[in-house]
Design a protein around this nucleic acid. Structure first.
Lengths: 193, 193
DNA sequence: TCAAATCGTTCACTTAAGTGAAGAAATGAA
DNA sequence: TTCATTTCTTCACTTAAGTGAACGATTTGA
């Protein structure tokens, strides 16, 4: 399991054995059961996650309705907004599959993470990559219809469609579950004709 | 004009007079006329912008149609995606008002910008801020209807509604100009009742 | 194992956005 | 100023999403 993490890190910086040891000594690996809510609206958490295996979901509750805005899967990291601005969270993070992840805490782990210019560099690169991906994602979402968004998802993250319930997927696409059902039927109809 | 820039920078780092001189010697200030296209689809530019006064717009052309995904106004910076990944741009940047801005070029100005850990720090903070704002924006967009998005805009960036043509605004809200007209009439009707 | 809850789909109806066209209003250039 | 262009609004019609309800299928847990 640790290998997955170190392989990922090695794409950005190279670690000495000592550094790896130091990281492991922090005891950052966790297994989280499906259904667990890692962050609730109103909470002030300091935990940031990196997913080795499994799936997390970010959602708001607006007028009593869940609005899913993101899924996080293997080799993706998640820094909740409340960690950055130290304010109560506006959304929930739930665990949608039994998941293996690392939990980091920027404050507690200052010695290892913030002290090292290496990690600093990696964090910066990752943050820039994330920003770039986000902008593209956002533009893609804004410039397409629900049907196009579904087709994009089918192309770019086909696994999500399999592993995530339809109602969450619908919310993620910005529509109701009934509309997703219809939309899929419509696509199927077209592909037949 | 320079004061606007240095006031902005001073919120993040403090500059010596020498450093200010050095920046000014780079001759980074530009005035750009309304209608100018700063970046075209397919181009590989290395220019990043910081707007002192005026308004830039980012848009795609998809099936012959302009799709506006962002506006940039006073005290906002714009780093086109093509600068980061050094690939041809997928979108256009146009100047919607006579605009005063600074033009930076990460490659050419390595001596001043990249050498200094100060600037490095500022860039990092700015990039984190931008990412945070983006995520909130994205979530807000995904979780609301066109009408709600218009009302949000009215609350958060009322200036945009005044200074930007309705058809660009409609595109930015993810709808057609006709729908924006209707939607505004609907809101007006409600507020009367 | 069986009852309850959740989930996905379908249906009929409502509401809002897309489309194409037409005309009024505003803008810009000669 | 005037004429041409662009922009905004309105209209009638089409298409797709929202809503509330019903029903079977699946999952869950007592």
């Amino acid at each position: 399991m640790q290998d997955l993490l170190f392989d990922f890190i090695s794409k950005y910086i190279s670690l000495t054995e000592d550094e790896k040891e130091a990281m492991l000594s922090l005891d950052i690996f966790r297994t989280v059961k499906k259904g667990t809510i890692l962050l609730k609206e109103g909470q002030k958490s300091q935990d940031v996650y990196f997913i080795l295996k499994g799936c997390l979901r970010k959602y708001y509750i607006i007028n009593g309705e869940e609005k899913t805005t993101a899924f996080f899967t293997e080799m993706e990291s998640l820094t909740p907004h409340c960690v950055i601005n130290n304010a109560p969270s506006e959304y929930f993070i739930s665990c949608e599959e039994n998941t293996i992840l690392t939990v980091g805490n920027p404050n507690r782990n200052v010695e290892i993470f913030t002290k090292s210019p290496k990690f600093d560099l990696m964090c910066r690169i990752l943050s820039e990559e994330t920003l770039a991906k986000h902008q593209i994602n956002f533009d893609e979402f804004k410039t397409s219809s629900p049907e196009q968004r579904y087709l994009n998802l089918l192309k770019n993250r086909p696994d999500l469609i399999q592993r995530v319930p339809q109602n969450q997927l619908a919310s993620y696409l910005g529509i109701k579950p009934q509309s997703l059902s219809r939309l899929r039927a419509r696509i199927l109809e077209k592909s037949k004709a």
